[in-house]
Simulated scan of single mutants.
Amino acid sequence: MKTTDVTARLASFGGAKWDVHLTARKRIAAGEDIVEMTIGEPDVPVPPELMEQAVTSMRAGRTGYSDGRGELNLRQALAERYSATRGRSFEPDNFLCFPGTQTALFAAMMGVAQQGDEVLVGDPMYATYEGVVAATGADLVPVPLTPENGFRMQADDVAARITPRTTALLLTSPHNPTGAILGRDDLLALCKLAKAHDFWIISDEVYEQMVFEGAEFVSPLTLSDYADRVIAVSSISKSHASPGFRSGWCVGSKAFCDALLPYSETMLFGNQPFIADMTELAVREGSSVAAGMSARFSRRAGLLADRLQAETALEVHRPEAGMFAMINVAPIGMNGDDYAWDLLDHGVAVMPGSAFSASLTSWVRVALTIDDAAFEIALARLISHANSKTQEVA
């Protein structure tokens, strides 16, 4: 039987990027001693106060159908939080609630892009972005993010790729996989381009609260002159160590949210009321775990960079935020895919850079989310493996 064009467009964006991770999981389940550093699971459980709120709400009967926009109590909490942090006023109708950032991003992209359009995306990019753009029928236009520029998007690189078909620019700051953060001047230059050429900016801000000491997060939503063309997506998955609850949102102008609402309601019709109550508490009270995670991830990133660069030929890009660090494996004569598979046989699982971009074929992404004892074991194995490969090349 024939399936639709969208299934064909997405056929190459399935699970193959996660082969190393899935193989590692199978081998760990079979009893092998492998340290898993592939995906960004928080290193702490869901805060107990959030669990208790979810259970209390379920027992109180908050298990029925939701408002199609998302529960009003949650949208009110989001409006108050964003008004306090973005320097301008937001109302509940500036928000739509979704199960996680991924769904919010998918819906937002479906609201601004279609067949014949082009969407500019920083390259490297999170593994699902290609599929999100392809689902709309639009063409993805990569904008290079280079190590020389700290993996920060450059306005000149964007300007060189704008065409009459450009309909949106997808930003990720803090960035996955590199941990780079766009500053206010960076965002202002990009927003000026968006206004001059009349395209949308979609900002994935899920790592907003995972910023390391000395760095600062800035949202394009703070640039009030460009507010009507900025859409942001986020969730409690990272900041509140709650990825399994799938609770996220989209924020934009009321006109955009009104236009997207019928699509959202057709897809899922709001979020679960008991999860909305839990998320309201998370939004109002802030995170009891984000600061600790950020401090640990920053410390582990520093330790990784210091040790590998002192004791091996490997090169580490120091992140400013997030859950990951990038390692350039070219100095030991390997590409990222071969390195990841070879390293798996030496007891450490990492993600090949090619999962995020063809430009990262010499890199791997390392999760900083494992506990300190496992991290020390992984470091020792990384150093031993790299030095053995260096000797082979010599």
Results as ranks from 00 to 15, higher is better:
Thr4Ser: 09
Val6Lys: 10
Ala8Pro: 01
Ala30His: 02
Asp33Glu: 14
Glu41Phe: 14
Asp43Val: 00
Glu49Gly: 08
Leu50Trp: 09
Leu50Gly: 00
Gly61Thr: 14
Tyr65Ala: 15
Gly70Met: 00
Ser83Gly: 10
Arg86His: 13
Pro92Met: 01
Cys97Ala: 14
Met109Trp: 04
Gly122Ala: 04
Asp123Ile: 02
Glu130His: 12
Val133Arg: 00
Ala135Ser: 11
Thr136Arg: 05
Gly137Tyr: 09
Leu140Ser: 05
Ala160Pro: 10
Ile162Thr: 04
Arg165Tyr: 00
Thr166Phe: 00
Leu171Tyr: 00
Asn176Ile: 04
Ala180Pro: 01
Ile181Cys: 13
Ile181Tyr: 12
Leu190Ala: 02
Cys191Arg: 05
Lys192Phe: 04
Ala194Pro: 04
Phe199Ala: 02
Trp200Phe: 14
Ser203Tyr: 15
Gln209Phe: 09
Phe212Asp: 15
Phe217Met: 02
Val218Arg: 15
Pro220Ser: 14
Ser224His: 05
Ser224Cys: 02
Asp225Arg: 12
Asp228Leu: 12
Ile231Asp: 03
Ile231Asn: 01
Val233His: 01
Ser235Leu: 06
Ser237Met: 06
Ser239His: 03
Gly244Ile: 00
Ser253Trp: 11
Leu260Asn: 02
Pro262Gly: 02
Ser264Gly: 12
Val283Phe: 01
Val289Met: 06
Gly292Arg: 13
Val316Asp: 12
His317Ala: 12
Gly322Cys: 02
Ala325Leu: 03
Ile327Tyr: 00
Asp338His: 08
His346Asp: 13
Gly347Phe: 10
Phe356Cys: 06
Ala378His: 11
Glu392Phe: 00
